[in-house]
Design a binder for these strands. Structure first.
Length: 944
RNA sequence: GCCCUUGUGGCGGAAUUGGUAGACGCGCUGGAUUCAAAAUCCAGUUCCUUCGGGAGUGGGGGUUCGAUUCCCCCCGGGGGUACCA
């Protein structure tokens, strides 16, 4: 019988579903293992061949672990809230829940096509009220908690309130914004509003006015990781900084722990570095400068207290609260003008035009506490309000930006570090000998920093401080399609959490999804929903990352109505053992999940400090983009030139063409035939009268000779709708089968690498599967397996592949697994093997990779039940033993010949035997043998 | 700019601790089969060569009996981040 993947695959998928083969229990004597994929956002485009790469790898690993005796949790769901569905709703009027539902159905059918072993009984989407009830519950937990910096963990806010009631603010160690002090009596005398305002400074979920990223086009605020290069990550719309009252999460309280615990997890170095940089820890000093003529002190942060003798001026952020107060009359007009200028600049302009220094003198002066000189105070764009204190001491001699600023405004520059000993050092490197710096003179920089920190603390003008670049996470979104923030405001505007019995706060139906111009959520229009017995609802919704910050916990106990996850379930599954997903989530999802997880850990809801023990970032599968060169010049519009005739690329626009029209697609010589040109102009009808130029001349559509070849330009790039190069896995599966598709995706190369998709290459894997299938059938295509004993050669082939597959899966090297299968199959075919003793383990070995065909062969071999529950084969060294070894023999490290020697020969005997080889004589003749290196079992090297 | 990562035949890639560079597959070339094509099968395929051999893992240098692998410098690709004081 011929290998017919379509028939086999349907049969076994039905079998798996009917028998619930992949359903996993939370109760088992087996050790547990949790394999998770980053769940998809179901976009309208469906899956392309790149998406399943990680799912295939995790599926193979999950199947392997099952066969190795683990109870494996391997779930899937959907990240269903988010901007694209809402933008789609605005454009089409189709409710996001409807389009999301359609998209999910499509995703599900595409995934079902691939034979994954997900336990679908645990499936959910983040937009299910049953799920987001618990997202809201966690938010309330954050609202109800504060961070105790003494105990270094989050605690219930009730404990803080109890402390205020007995001791006031005395002795409180907590992560907060401002250090108000009050007694217990004063606390009790405060109004509810006053108390609430104070507590806001401590809550893990809190409201504050902050300079946030406001995106006018999207009508919402965005988190820092949702802004790339000064524009919104979704849609690329301009973003500006605006002070707005917003919900935020106090992730900064966890900065140090998020940094430290990176040491404890098995993640790629790249991912750890991304997070380390994003957290951006720096050590330095908080320092107070006296202001001339004012009582206030100016607080700054510096990592270079050693350079303070070189601080010749100061710079504040334009938004700094002291600016208005200390600006002198004479400078008022200039300052106002400068502030108008900075306000007019978008975030993007500010970021892209960093070369140019701008600033304005305030007329005010501060006193350098060590030189006692009065130094001028400026405002400047290069100082950011939301880092440090929004103010700096400027040391032009040792900071590039300060230097540029000082040069432009003709401010004094005092050299304080002699770098002549370190010629390679840059201005900002912490290297050199202190000069012009009073008591620091002659010291090396690191020692000077230490001494200066001591002096500062001794004099009481500041203290050591660790600063983080990490910002608190903006949590409000002025959008419809997200989880409503479960907060009610009373008549005084004091926020109260909604009672658990009232959760979930479901999204009310809405017809108009258009964002409002005044920065309020579309939900604000729904007044009957907003007003609740004298209370008003919060109308902002949660950001896209809310649900994904904890979804992996929900899979442990997905249908629980009484808790986000039961104690017993989370104690059993603990954490995700293996997490596979793209590397684009380093500063978003993976940061927030770690934060939420640690928070839940502090409050005793989860037993581990980290959510994801091991992380693998799969690479992207790229597509080939086919372009046509179109002349840019006005008079030659609609003139396409064959790629081989193009000399000056600048003169041509590149028009992407649908890849199905292109012959020899993806190759250097890809071209459009007359047929391809016809398809192209039928698709892009505006080019129906265009001219196509090749070396043979100019041709109009329809007037080309049969041999006409118009070369296209091929380039590797993203697989995307806009390049018309998307390959749908469904089409590949239709033609080759899911087993073949799965193995081919793995065969393409290492999981972590990005690599281009090449449909042509799949033939190799397809041939392999047929060859492998052929081992079980005789010449007349009848199933025919022999019970005869296997030969030592056959056993050697079998155990070689068993050993290789085991070790390669363990190190996630799936591409070499496929090669090993091919090698084994080729060898067995040459030997004409059809022995049961060889084929049974081979089928077991194959089943994680090609589960459908493995089930079919397993059944034909006479077994009942599924091969997926069988034990994974283990190799036996005795079958791998060799009597003789082929040694490579090198002269001076260059291989010249090989020779077979007995495997048990000693080093000395090998040396003697090798030197006696007749072939060797011409190489050593007349030369002195200096040394012979023999590595038993490996190689022999003769040095002459 | 800084940080991470990557560079091996025409292509995807292999070489797990420094030990036969190019496994496996695609493509290509030749052959068999066929009226022919597709499919299939067999053989060859890093480059140069005077057929002895020589060169070769982005480039240059180093350590070593031996380097794709370790060290230093430089160049290219991909990603992250960016007035962070």
């Amino acid at each position: 019988m011929e290998y017919n993947p379509q028939a086999i695959e349907r049969k076994w998928r039905d079998y798996w579903e009917k028998n619930e083969i992949y359903r996993v229990s939370n109760e088992s004597d087996k050790p547990k293992y949790y394999v998770l994929d980053m769940f998809p956002y179901p976009s309208g485009a469906g899956l392309h061949v790149g998406h399943p790469l990680g799912y295939i790898a995790s599926d193979i690993y999950a199947r392997y672990k099952r066969m190795k005796g683990f109870n494996v949790l391997h779930p899937m769901g959907y990240d269903a809230f988010g901007l694209p569905a809402e933008q789609y709703a605005i454009d089409t009027g189709i409710h996001p829940s409807v389009s999301t539902d359609d998209n999910i159905k499509k995703y599900r059918s595409q995934m079902d096509n691939l034979g994954f072993s997900f336990d679908w009984s645990r499936e959910f989407r983040t937009s299910d009220p049953d799920f987001y009830k618990w997202t809201q519950w966690i938010f309330q937990l954050l609202f109800d908690s504060y961070y105790d910096t003494g105990a270094d963990k989050a605690k219930p806010i009730a404990e803080l309130i109890a402390h205020f009631e007995t001791s006031g603010s005395e002795g409180v160690k907590a992560a907060n914004q401002n250090d108000q002090t009050f007694t217990a009596v004063e606390w009790k005398a405060m109004s509810a509003v006053e108390q609430s305002d104070i507590l806001t400074n401590f809550r893990m979920a809190f409201r504050k006015v902050a300079y946030v990223n406001w995106c006018e086009v999207l009508g919402t605020v965005l988190a820092n990781d949702e802004v790339k290069d000064g524009v919104s990550e979704r849609g690329g719309h301009p973003v500006e900084k605006r002070p707005m009252l917003q919900w935020s999460l106090r992730i900064t309280a966890y900065a140090q722990r998020l940094l430290d615990d990176l040491q404890t997890i098995d993640w790629p170095d790249a991912m750890k570095t991304i997070q380390t940089n994003w957290i951006g820890r720096s050590e330095g000093a908080q320092l107070f400068f006296d202001l001339a003529g004012h009582d206030e002190k100016l607080e700054i942060y510096t990592t270079r207290p050693d350079t303070i003798f070189g601080a010749t001026y100061m710079v504040l952020a334009p938004e700094h609260p002291l600016v208005d107060k200390i600006t002198t009359k004479e400078q008022r007009a200039a300052v106002t003008e400068y502030l108008e200028y900075t306000n007019s600049r978008s975030e993007r302009e500010r970021m892209t035009e960093v070369k140019e220094v701008t600033g304005c003198f305030l007329g005010a002066y501060a006193k350098n506490p060590f030189t006692n000189n009065e130094i001028p105070i400026f405002i400047g764009e290069y100082v950011l309000m939301d880092y440090g204190t929004g103010a700096i001491m400027a040391v032009p001699s040792d900071d590039d930006r300060d230097y540029a600023f000082a040069t432009k405004f003709k401010l004094p520059i005092i050299d304080v570090i002699d770098k002549s000993k370190y010629p390679a050092a840059d201005r900002h490197d912490k290297l050199g000998i202190m000069i012009n710096s009073g008591f620091l003179n002659g010291m090396e920089v690191p020692a000077a920093i230490t001494l200066m920190l001591e002096k500062i603390e001794e004099r009481g003008i500041g203290q050591r401080q660790v600063n983080f670049r990490l910002r608190d996470a903006t949590f409000s979104r002025q959008r419809y399609w997200g989880e409503p923030i479960p907060i009610l405001y009373d008549a005084d505007g004091v926020p109260q959490k909604v009672d658990l019995s009232q959760l979930p706060i479901e999204l009310p139906p809405l017809d108009n999804f258009q964002p409002t111009a005044d920065g309020r959520s579309p939900l604000a229009r729904k007044t009957d929903w907003v007003n609740q017995d004298g209370m008003t609802r919060e109308t902002d919704t949660m950001p896209g990352y809310a649900g994904s910050s904890w979804y992996y916990l929900r899979y442990m106990d997905a249908r629980n109505h009484d808790a986000f996850v039961s104690k017993s379930a989370v104690n059993y599954w603990q954490q995700v053992d293996l997490y596979i997903g793209g590397p684009e989530h380093g500063t978003g999802h993976l940061m927030y999940s770690r934060f939420w997880h640690k928070f839940l850990y502090d409050l005793g809801y989860v037993p581990t400090a980290e959510p994801f023990k091991k992380l693998i970032n799969q690479g992207m599968i790229q597509g080939v983009i086919e372009f046509l060169y179109l002349s840019k010049s006005e008079d030659k519009k609609k003139r396409f030139v064959s790629a081989d005739q193009v000399k000056n690329i600048e003169a041509y626009a590149r028009i992407p063409v649908f890849i199905d029209f292109v012959s020899d697609y993806g190759s250097k010589d890809s071209y459009l035939s007359p047929q391809g040109i016809k398809q192209f102009v039928a698709w892009r009808t505006d080019y129906v009268d265009a001219v196509f130029v090749t070396e043979d001349g100019e041709f109009k559509v329809g007037a080309m000779p049969v041999t006409f070849k118009f070369q296209t330009h091929s380039e590797v790039g993203k697989m995307s709708k806009r390049y018309f190069n998307v390959v749908n896995p469904d089409d590949v599966v239709d033609k080759y089968g899911a087993d073949c598709f799965r193995m081919y995706e793995m065969f393409l190369g290492p999981l972590e690498h990005s690599k281009p998709w090449d449909t042509q290459g799949i033939d190799g894997v397809s041939k392999f599967l047929r060859k492998m299938w052929g081992l079980f059938f005789d010449k007349n295509e009848n199933f025919s397996v022999s019970d005869a004993a296997a030969t030592p050669e056959e056993m050697k082939v079998l155990h070689t592949v068993i050993k290789k597959i085991n070790s390669d899966i363990d190190r996630f090297s799936f591409n070499t697994c496929i090669s090993a299968f091919m090698v084994a199959t080729n060898d067995l075919k040459k030997m004409g093997t059809n022995k049961r003793a060889v084929l049974v383990p081979l089928v077991q070995l194959l089943s994680p990779f090609a589960p459908h065909v493995a089930e079919e062969l397993w059944q034909r071999l006479g077994h009942e039940g599924s091969v997926t529950t069988e034990e994974f084969p283990q190799h036996d060294e005795q079958f791998l033993r060799e009597d003789s070894i082929t040694y490579p023999i090198s002269i001076n490290g260059k291989k010249r010949m090989t020779a077979d020697f007995a495997a048990d020969m000693s080093k000395e005997d090998l040396e003697k035997a090798a030197l006696a080889l007749p072939d060797l004589q011409k190489w050593i003749e007349g030369k002195e043998i200096r040394k012979v290196i023999v590595v038993v079992g490996r190689m022999i090297n003769v040095v002459v």
